[in-house]
């Protein structure tokens, strides 16, 4: 049981504390609005599409890189799924094929990022910045501009439907979460990503194949992008080359707030998950207070910078303590 209370969990504790504070505050000040089924449901309908995205960014940041092409990958995957479904007359088979094609697209796009980063050793920031343009561009070529609307009902069900009172998308998110947790903590790959992000050379000298790890990491991230793309297009009942552009910042914010260190190596799935929930609560709070989206963007930027400032200052302190 020694992993339960590690020192590095202070971040997880802080996040849980903040969530509890918000929950209590809600209970005190607006119980009749927050603790209603419809509100809880609306919360659950919102966060999975960007939460999944954040897991992709998390893996890349832990590996010592970053992925800012994920929104592009998500839109490209969504557009491809939509094209297939619309082209095949919205049959159930077309939905399955569309989803599979979307996942394959995400994997391929991620592999493309990964190979530029792994084989050519180009900086991840540059590769994924270019990548975002590339994938959005591909999506635009397919759609020729306008959104692809009116997707099959069964497809819309993924992100809009419920079983009883519980949104289907919650199950999807939990499945992804379990998968991500498993991959990051219970597989060789998950550990190797951390080793690579912690010290690239030492990883090589420990027999870890960094090239393979990089490819897998960005492919994993691309897969997350694709899942997010499916959720987004299902949620909006529409696919387009430039949906969800604000999610790039949002996913990085989640990941950094979740305790993933921007220099790589350090970060936990639990932290990121709590961070997703916390940010969704904050978003919901903004909605209650009728705060305009632009204020929110600004606030998210502010939170991101504050978190980084705190991270860096505490880093400095720790360094000073050690020497």
């Amino acid at each position: 049981m020694r992993s339960v209370l590690k020192k590095s969990d202070s971040n997880v504790i802080a996040l849980s504390f903040l969530i509890v504070v918000i929950l209590i505050a809600m209970a005190l000040f607006m119980p009749d609005r927050f603790y209603t089924m419809s509100n809880l449901r609306s919360i659950v309908f919102q966060f999975p599409e960007y939460g999944v995205l954040a897991f992709g960014v998390m893996a890349c940041m832990i590996s010592g890189g970053i992925d800012i092409s994920l929104v592009g990958i998500a839109n490209l995957s969504g557009v491809i799924a939509a094209t297939i479904m619309l082209g095949m007359g919205k049959s159930n088979l077309s939905i399955v094929l569309g989803i599979l094609a979307a996942l394959a697209t995400g994997l391929l796009a991620g592999l493309f990022n990964g190979s530029l980063i792994g084989f050519l050793r180009l900086p991840p920031m540059l590769v994924t910045l270019c990548g975002s343009q590339l994938y959005a561009g591909l999506a635009l070529i397919i759609t020729k501009g306008p959104a692809l609307n009116d997707l099959p009902d069964n497809y819309k069900f993924i992100a809009n439907g419920s079983i009883g009172q519980i949104p289907v998308v919650l199950f999807v998110f939990i499945a992804v979460l379990v998968f991500v947790y498993f991959v990051m903590n219970r597989t060789v790959f998950g550990r190797q990503v951390r080793f690579m992000g912690s010290n690239y050379e030492a990883a090589r000298y420990s027999g870890i194949n960094n090239l393979k790890t990089t490819l897998r990491c960005y492919a994993f991230s691309g897969l997350m992008g694709a899942i997010s793309g499916i959720l987004m297009s299902s949620h909006f009942n529409s696919a387009k080359s430039d949906y969800g552009t604000q999610y790039t910042l949002f996913s990085i914010l989640i990941v950094v707030l979740g305790g993933v260190h921007p220099d790589g190596g350090r970060g936990r799935v639990a932290g990121v998950t709590l961070s997703i929930i916390l940010l969704q609560f904050i978003t919901q709070l903004f909605t209650f207070l009728r705060i305009d989206t632009n204020y929110r963007t600004s606030a998210y930027g502010f939170i991101l910078i504050s978190v980084l400032v705190i991270t860096m200052i505490s880093d400095k302190r720790r360094l000073r303590r050690m020497t």
Partner: peptide, 23 residues
């Protein structure tokens, strides 16, 4: 001064300013 990675710092500033302006 705070040695925050430039990409993330300026990404944050970008939203902070543009959001604030629009708001």
């Amino acid at each position: 001064s705070l040695r925050i990675p430039p990409l993330i710092a300026t990404l944050g500033m970008n939203s902070l300013i543009s959001g604030g302006l629009l708001a």
